[in-house]
Nucleic acid binder design. Structure first.
Lengths: 349, 349
DNA sequence: CTGAAAGCGCTAACAC
DNA sequence: GTGTTAGCGCTTTCAG
């Protein structure tokens, strides 16, 4: 079948030199229409495709961008967040002619062993790194610019380009929503504060409460690890402390929280209001979860776009961008209940 | 920093020729120990890494394997199944020195546009394709062996290598489990029969029921599309027809089914038994789901191993392998309830 | 055991 | 407009 096809052999078949074939392939101007057509026909007939290795050897570009998912978030990989993110990254890679390589490190050992390969110039054109953790050792090694990198999420290092979502603003939105509905004993199930997303959502929520002259009571906060079961466990602990509303820092954890409540026959939103974060579980809960939606796919796509700009030199690092979030009102906060929510009941010193 | 490092420059630094450096790098015997040490030291100091493009230009190998996820299953990408599969594939790729490229096609158009690139020799060493659908156009174009391919799942084409799980056997196990517990009105929420997995699970379940002299009543079967909400909807329809046990062909759909039941205050397993398939939601439901566990990660890893054998020529296509599944008894079938389940009640013409 | 030389398939000056 | 010619960095004979 298709084999041994080279510029040279195509040229021979079309009766031209290899340079001309190269010009046709790269859509360069200086080729007469008839020659161009003839060459294209031969290419079509033979099914010739240029050898990428040879091409990248001379051009210095590989056409490959890498997506690195560090080992510590590995266990979270099953959160639909990553599926969406990958979809967004893939969607933006294909049109730009890039191939996406996935680096899913199993553990620290593998990470440090394979890491050199990932940042070595000539292997990848650029890198997207998901960095949900603070003090990422990978980031430290990148700053000195071996290869263009864009981080998804806020890195806690300077000089690194990134795309983040407005975690603080979104969490504040959640706080305001709960306040405006009259809830009094407002709690939170947080994400790990060792991740910038977790830290930012906590900060934002506290700030949002402050805008309504409220504070987040110490005993009304539990943290999870982004998993469904951690949300379930956290909510079981909170129930005894009787919050009337809880902000859960991820939808997956919120599903766990709802499960815990249903198990105890606590009604949502009548007995307790729940608001999530992510916007990833639109129809997976009964009642439908009120949440803060972040544009996950777009975040991934935007990261690739910025990376392409970095690679082409159109932009110089570091650059950053914050994606907007929005409140999506569902049924778990009682916003749509006919009568206004409790206002000013529930007192506690 | 690190730049322009080539075999030549390393050789100069170490006072040897580029051939010798190449031999050291490729661990070839004929190099004297002292020279080898000297060269290695220079490599360490400079941080030199071979240019992969040049290497693959001469070797004909790229060290890259592709994972293709066709557009029709794209919407299902968020099922944790794919996350696990990717983990397995990635886990097996790294040690074998391969890089994993992900081809997540958004739609048919993109699929056929990018497809040539994917099967063109010289771009990828091999391909893993998830083929949950029948009549896959990609598979048709592959059979004539342009590039080594291993399919995950049973392809409905001949001559294609694949790794599948024992869907039929597993579904039969589920049927036997329900029969042995004495259930009478046994229903099923199936996966799309346009996927080989869906078809095989249906076949196996019917066969399993037959072993207990039962048939799957027409009106006790509804099909979903692997999504949580489709499981929810299917169960809502089934409820009125009063099955006392339901086999749900995927855990994700089973979670939806459980949600529908909880919403109607139907108790599991007291009022109805539920058994899933996949083993992906170990602690995500209350009560804990009884299910048929398939080794998803291992399936992915095995696919890569077979692919490597195909690439190296150690094995010749087509080859195939069926991974075993197992029954995991949870709390949704009442297997652990103190008293034996109802035996022989519920009559209907 | 080591070096010299050829060549993988392509792009990009540089001629004509 | 088109062909000729150098390499890109590497592996691999082939000499020595």
């Amino acid at each position: 079948m298709t084999q041994n096809l080279t510029l040279e052999s195509i040229g021979r078949l079309a009766g031209v030199s290899r340079s001309t074939v190269s010009r046709v392939i790269n859509d360069q101007a200086s080729v007469s229409p008839d020659v161009r057509d003839r060459v294209k026909e031969v290419i079509r007939l033979t099914g010739y495709a240029p050898n990428l290795a040879a091409r990248s050897l001379v051009s210095g570009r590989t056409g490959v961008i890498g997506l690195v998912i560090p080992s510590r978030v590995h266990s979270l990989f099953e959160d639909p967040y990553f599926a969406r993110l990958i979809q967004g990254i893939s969607a933006a890679s294909n049109p730009s002619g890039n191939t996406l390589s996935l680096f899913l490190f199993q553990n620290e050992e593998e990470e440090s062993r394979l890491y050199p390969r990932v940042v070595t110039p000539g292997f990848l054109d650029g890198l997207v790194i998901t960095a949900t953790r603070m003090g990422d050792p990978l980031l430290a090694r990148i700053s000195n610019g071996e290869i263009p990198v864009v981080v998804v999420g806020r890195p806690d290092a300077d000089g690194v380009s990134y795309v983040d979502v407005d975690n603080r603003g979104g969490a504040a939105l959640a706080a305001n929503h709960l306040c405006s509905l009259g809830y009094q004993r407002i709690g939170m199930i947080g994400a790990p504060t060792g991740t910038t997303a977790g830290a930012d959502r906590l900060t934002g929520f506290v700030e949002g409460l402050a805008e309504c002259d409220r504070v987040l009571q110490r005993n009304l906060r539990e943290d999870g690890d982004f998993s469904e079961s951690s949300g379930y466990e956290a909510m079981k602990k909170l129930i005894a402390r009787e919050p009337d509303a809880v902000f859960v820092a991820s939808d997956t954890m919120a599903l766990g929280a709802l499960r815990a409540l249903k198990e105890q026959n606590i009604r949502v939103p009548e007995d307790i209001a729940i608001i999530g974060f992510d916007g990833l579980a639109p129809d997976r809960s009964s009642p439908i979860l009120t949440t803060i939606r972040q544009p996950v796919m777009q975040t991934g796509s935007r990261a690739v776009e910025l990376l392409n700009d970095l690679i082409s030199g159109a932009l110089a690092a570091p650059i950053s961008e914050i994606m907007p979030v929005e409140l999506v009102v569902g049924d778990t906060c009682g916003a749509n209940l006919p009568e206004p929510r409790r206002k000013g009941s529930a007192n506690e010193p």
